[in-house]
Design a protein around this nucleic acid. Structure first.
Lengths: 149, 149
DNA sequence: TCTTGACCTTCCCATCGTTGGAACCTTCAT
DNA sequence: ATGAAGGTTCCAACGATGGGAAGGTCAAGA
């Protein structure tokens, strides 16, 4: 099975499959005589695992740990659970930060006439840091770190 | 005022001030005879504006638009409001995606004994895409795009 | 005056996950 | 045989930020 077929079957793009191989997340695929990578159903299964973990917001490095635990039949479920709880924690911190942003913006937007007058509480807040009863934004605490997908 | 002082006063790091200048978000700072960048109180005001907009989750490109509206005294508040509402929308989509991730993980973690047995619903879900009554993860829809801070 | 340390300058590199493209090779169908 | 489709490698970019090297500048103290 070629990389394109594996990509379609797993939901991971061919580009990303090569990337995962290059970075060591998955081991180098077998090669056909032509040099084309050759994937088995098990490989696709692996890729789907990765894809699902990405969809749950796990970083690639964390997925490496999950893959090890997956392959380790003597693993303790507590180890997996710990990773999951950490991930939930990280997600919730990001959610809170985003909610705080949205809440503040919503307040500002609600105060804004939104007409053709130039006066605008949103701009005023950005300008001065104050506008109506809007709460000041926390500096860097709980900043939303880089997160993809 | 040097870049370090402007950084301290605005909350934007010196690195980022240079970056904003390089990418055209702010215009090149005046220079002292030494070659040092020289900032005025108005510049710091500008930087604080940027900083606050970043704290609200605006992308740098969007902040460019905001800055134009800020400087345009004939602006319509409706234009600013539109940007704000778009931003709220984007934030809320990200929040929903993250909540969906967290919810799924929480369900899985709740099903997991978390003891020293190898059996683990979290792994099982990643493996098969199914585990208990867990809802399947939506493919790419509303995927959380890259977002910093 | 000389030194020292703090600050400035530019430039390059790394992050993280992902995509795009160029240049080239293989496979398959017409 | 020819062309399309899809494989290969390598290089670059995205966005926002930080790290660090190599070198210039400034102010304070000996």
């Amino acid at each position: 099975m070629t990389i394109g077929q594996a990509a379609k079957a797993s939901g991971v793009s061919a580009k990303m499959i090569r990337y995962y191989e290059r970075t060591g997340l998955i081991r180098p695929a077998d090669r056909q005589a032509s040099g084309y990578r050759d994937y088995s159903a098990a490989d696709v299964h692996n890729l789907r695992f990765i894809r699902r973990a990405r969809d749950l917001g796990f970083a690639v490095a964390e997925i490496g740990e999950l893959l090890n635990l997956w392959r380790d039949h003597a693993r303790h479920s507590s180890e997996v659970k710990k990773l999951a709880l950490n991930q939930i924690d990280a997600l919730e911190r990001k959610i809170l930060a985003l909610q705080e942003m949205a809440r503040t913006l919503r307040t500002l937007a609600d105060c804004c006439h939104g007409d053709d007058r130039p006066d605008c509480p949103i701009i005023r807040n950005l300008e001065t840091g104050l506008a109506g009863e809007t709460v000041a934004i926390q500096p860097r605490i709980g900043a939303v770190e880089k997160h993809t997908r």
